[in-house]
Design a protein around this nucleic acid. Sequence first.
DNA 1: CTACTCGGTGACAACGTTGTCACGACCTGG
DNA 2: CCAGGTCGTGACAACGTTGTCACCGAGTAG
Lengths: 345, 345
Amino acid sequence: MGRPTMNDVARHAGVSLKTVSRVVNGETSVSADLAARVQAAVDMLHYRPNIGASMLRRADRRTRTIAVLLEDVGNPFSSSLHRAVEDEARTRGVQVLTGSLDEDPQRERELARVFTMRRADGLIIAPASTDQAYLATEVQQDTPVVFVDRPANGFPGDCVIATNVTGATEAVRHLVAHGHRRIAHLGDYARIPTARSRHQGYLAALAEAGLAVEPDLIVQDLHDEAAAESATMTLYARPDPPTALFTSQNLVTVGAVRALRRLRLHRAVAVVGFDDFPLADLLEPAVTVVAQDPALMGRTAARALFERIDGATGAPREFWIPTSLIRRGSGELPPSRSLRDAIAL
Amino acid sequence: MGRPTMNDVARHAGVSLKTVSRVVNGETSVSADLAARVQAAVDMLHYRPNIGASMLRRADRRTRTIAVLLEDVGNPFSSSLHRAVEDEARTRGVQVLTGSLDEDPQRERELARVFTMRRADGLIIAPASTDQAYLATEVQQDTPVVFVDRPANGFPGDCVIATNVTGATEAVRHLVAHGHRRIAHLGDYARIPTARSRHQGYLAALAEAGLAVEPDLIVQDLHDEAAAESATMTLYARPDPPTALFTSQNLVTVGAVRALRRLRLHRAVAVVGFDDFPLADLLEPAVTVVAQDPALMGRTAARALFERIDGATGAPREFWIPTSLIRRGSGELPPSRSLRDAIAL
DNA sequence: CTACTCGGTGACAACGTTGTCACGACCTGG
DNA sequence: CCAGGTCGTGACAACGTTGTCACCGAGTAG
């Protein structure tokens, strides 16, 4: 004996199945006494509508479910974004399915397919793959997709993206303004679009300041703390190390800070990181960052998605979420004259 | 024209609906050439089964969905736990619905009801309310519920809980071992069971060391950084402040550390926090904590849940997830003789 | 050669719900 | 008093799928 159905309620209340349906759906065309009898039966049996069955029959075909594909629901950026999406969904009585992609394009496709089979009303995707053309066959014609954090390719959908290029430019310009001429860039996987944009912003700031690009000072494909830490160690084993670092992602920033600590250079080398992280203000020196606003990105993406679900048409839109430079200390350190001495120390 | 259905595929392949069903479900009793024709039609039409409809008809009534109710999917503890649950679910082809409770008992009931209407196969709940008796009428007889982080009341289900009491005792014992006699406790909302357990552990360690409980040194109902920071400030405005702090939650720990910084007491007052947090090792001094293992808690809860979903019966089980003391510096500071002088400074 | 089995296939009902329509009771206006 | 409309209610089909069962043809044993 599973859960009671509408039929059970109808029998209990001595009315027809359809009348129960009407009461449960709050239609007003039911007489007061029948409605009361139905309600009593519902309460007695603890009846709960099966919304799966309901969606099957309903005209609008809505599951009142959206799916969110993020890099990793366990990391701070993704989870803040997730939370903001949840809050928007909640006001609409919509539930949220999530999945982590771990930078795996294959997994992105798999999950898109799975959520399609579940007939999610819409998808929010932080792409791990470089090409979303597969979505054309994977999702239903009228299932909207909103891309967040990274741009989409090959599939039309609203995009919600941080101002990566200008944010990175601002970061590097800030270092230049504090007198730095040799500024290294520690970047994430070069295949990640945001990493490329930030790299581009770095180059733009150098160009603007008339500084030469020194390939030796650019290290890419750093994705975790350990890689960033060892890359930083290597950088400072060179004869002529940079006086400042621009790190393009928070794990990279933390790895670099760790390395500078070990080298006792944390008060000698300036650092500006892209993306804020908790406790950045409590480190010594506190870490200057270009902060993103993941909650705003999530809220914006969710709102855009719901507008589409509610029928908004028109060309794909781009929402640019501004970044903001937060001066905390590490980015305001002046260039150290005697870095090599400091290292020798 | 929505998505193609099995009927469309059947028509295209020139076979019956049922044959398509068999092929889609991988039944082997279909001849090779019919199976091939069906597969071709599936590929051509980009057919995707509607698993909502499928679940309605299937004998096992499984939605292959579980629901996870956490405090806040955006905080580090909840999101690590969530991620671990996702990984377990993924190996089983099960999807995860999540919801944040924000310590709101009402919201816990609402979400339990919503996920029931969606016929989730099982629930993982980090309770926000003190009584889960409502689940008896809310969830189906055979829908298992696993409680995580906090114990349940009034409803049978496996529990996955950190060793809060012994962890807290170990923390305080550690401070005692370093010579502290006046150890304050900064606790979360007293209504939260874990906060109470940690408080209990604190008292046990004092008793064990023959130290008197000083009510003035116990501050409860601190739930965020700001509250913890101002409580700490107040504590050090007293004539005879504690030489060490035991903080029962990571936001409280961070708030306390912030206050000690402002008071320039961060090298004078020992701190041990309950629950680890990113970058605790990079602060000065690095923060000694009793670490929980949220990923292990999530994994354990998910495995327990799936065992129940797969039919395991028997009395509710308790899984105790051990905590571990991580010595980093702040907890090893000796008692300062001249705290009042330091404050005056 | 017959009876019986077995493997492959399809017709049909059913899952729990909502959309459509028809029916009867009551009211209203001429 | 009757035609026409409105209101409340229920019978029935349908959503997309799977479970059940019956059927057909071929192979096998007696």
